[in-house]
Amino acid sequence: MSVLLDNLDDFLSRFGVTLGLFVLSGVASMILGTLLAAMRVSPVPAMRTVGTGYVTLLRNTPLTLVLFFFALGFTKLFFYLPFFLLAVVGLSLYTAAFVCETVRGGISTVPAGQSEAARALGLGFTQTLSLIVLPQAIRSVVPPLTSVQIALLKNTTVAAGFSVVEAGGFYRVVNEQGGSTLVALLWVALGFVILVVPLTAVQRRLEKRWSVAR
């Protein structure tokens, strides 16, 4: 217990950073991933190619490499950004590839008749997608999307390797003080469990609310 209490301020501020990384990257990856999914089902071949290329590149690259690029390469190639923001960008781009594939899976569960009815009423491609197809697609993939976001939450610890002071690096502080690394890691694990529980609760609520419409 003393491992936690002696370092409570540090522990909490690190989880604050973890939460910040997660919320910003979560929102950004959902938006970008949904746009990418829309591109992958677009009637314009160039859009489909860009979407497919993006997913192939980002989904097949280890997250560590993606973050390496942003931590080391980005500032050299373009302009200065704090490590925290670089980590958000890297995590968002990486996670968006998984969100895209999950949402695309959802799109394929929406019956063709739904978009035919929309087009027959005079809705264009973008309206059909945004008003009819995507809302139903996302409803059908709430559990796997939650899994993608939980994976993102845990992936934030990779950012610890790149000077972002977040929860995954807590054990090092304790270690330097001569405390037990194992105990420190257990506290961090518990912290993550506490963060994931509300996500699961949100998933259950959404599933329940949207089950009526099916």
Partner: peptide, 13 residues
């Protein structure tokens, strides 16, 4: 042009 389908195709959400 109004259209009515065999499977109704009401927007389920």
């Amino acid at each position: 042009v109004g259209m009515v389908f065999q499977q109704f195709n009401l927007f389920s959400h």
